[in-house]
Structure formats: C-alpha cells, structure tokens
Amino acid sequence: MSVLLDISHIDMEFPTPKGSFTALKDVNLKISQGEFVSLIGHSGCGKSTVLNVVAGLYQATRGGVILNGREVTEPGPERAVVFQNHSLLPWLTAYENVELAVRQVFGKSRSKTEMREWIEHNLNLVHMGHAMHKRPAEISGGMKQRVGIARALAMQPKVLLMDEPFGALDALTRAHMQDSLMEIQAELNNTVIMITHDVDEAVLLSDRIVMMTNGPAATIGEILDVNLERPRHRLELADDALYNQYRARVLKFLHERHSQPDVPATKPVENKPDAPQTASAEHSRPAVETVEDAA
C-alpha cells in the first residue's frame, strides 16, 4: 500500500498572551490508502490539534502535511471532518445540513434527484432517516453526532477525519455505529483518522493505534499495529487473546502516562539543570493547568 497521507515532522505553537505555547512537537506519521488509524491520548494532549492540521484548519508552525503528493495548505471537502461537537448549522434540518455539503461537492456532477437520493442514503446509513427533517435543537446529542457523520460520509472524502465521533452516544448506539463504520469503511475503503478515548473502540476499529504523549509539546509515544482479521465481530473478539493483548498494551500506555503526567515525551530528564530548559519547563506549567481546567 502506498502512502496517501504524510504528516511530516509537525510542530504546532499557539500564540498566547503569556508567549507561545507548544502544543505539538515533531509529530510524524505516514498513513496508507484505506488505513484506519486511531489517535488516543489524554485529554488536552493535542489530538484535535493534529486533526485540525491535517484538515488544514490550522497551519503547522514547522513541518507539513502531504496528501497524495501535494502539500495541504487549506481545508477542503476531500478531507471531511466530523467535529468533536458535531457543528451542525442550527437553523437547518438534518437533511439540509447534509444537503449543503452534498451540493457543494456534487452540485455540478449529479442531478437533483441523484443528490436527494444520496443525502437520504447517507442519513439512512446512520439511522437518521426517521428524523431527517428535524433541526439540531430537536434531536439528541447522539443523533446530532450521527448527522455530522452522515454529512462527512456524504462528501465521499479521500480522508475522513473524526474527532471523538461516538463520544456522545450511549453504549448500544455506539456499538451499532462502530459496526456501521466498519462496514462502510470495508465497502468504500476510506482512509480514516479517528480520535477516541475508548480503548475497546480503538482496538476494534483500527489498523493502527497512535498513542500520544501528554502535552505540552505532545508527540507520538507509541504506535500499535492491530493485526486482527477483518471483518471483526465484537463478541468473538471479547475472548480473543490477541485482542486482549492489544487492549492491555494501550491501557498500560495510558495508565503510565496518567500516573506520571510529567514524563517528558522525547527529551530525557537530564536536560533539566540547563537554564533555558528550566525556564521553558516553568513556562509550560500554567499551560498544563489550563489543560486540566479545560478537561
């Protein structure tokens, strides 16, 4: 499989009133066509930031993203995003929200009827067919998230970027949506980057799990290849030894990070006595606190 998406040595610094804040440091990842990659890591470590850089919504301070041999400089519908908080337009119905995207992408190439069928097909895919003429305020959080997924899928993106797409769903709907996503992905061979907090979800869905270290200056701590046969069935996997090994590996990583949140990701500890280093460590402290506040 060839490399479709190359996230190449990305640094991300945000200007803040207290000086610049380094959210990401040297994030490097190559993703193949059709691959399903999960990003997992503690809250506030910079997962959304990675996704936003790939989407083109943020410009990396250093490094860049290359999609199909072209550098990503701006957002576009070939990198559809399922936003962390659904981001539906509140004045449009579920149908109209998907329609806006479909018209923008397929307005020239498809007829009105084709577009209508395509919109309805995608809403049915996420089981929102019964409520497609309701506005976001009239549907539950999980339903909104599903419409957000339908909108992204309907754009037939080269890369599907999903920021905790199932976070707001109950366990049953969540399981259901995970199964549909696996089916859709198997059928369309989408390339997917998904952020999640759920270890089971990550292992079940992914080809690779990218575990991120804690911020500031977060980076990739470990990458786990998940070599489980597809199609995968959650009930069969529950007793699968390999599956449980993967789970344990991810859990261990997260647990280690959690119990030692200040473990430096890349740099060894002996740098600390250095004057500039200490300064930067002090500097980063308030930022860590804000992260925890935000979480």
Partner: peptide, 9 residues
C-alpha cells in the same frame, strides 16, 4: 460553523 464552511470551501 466557520470551520464547516471552510471544509466545504
């Protein structure tokens, strides 16, 4: 919402 608009170009 602005981001949605940007992604849709």
């Amino acid at each position: 919402l602005v981001n949605v608009s940007k992604v849709l170009r």
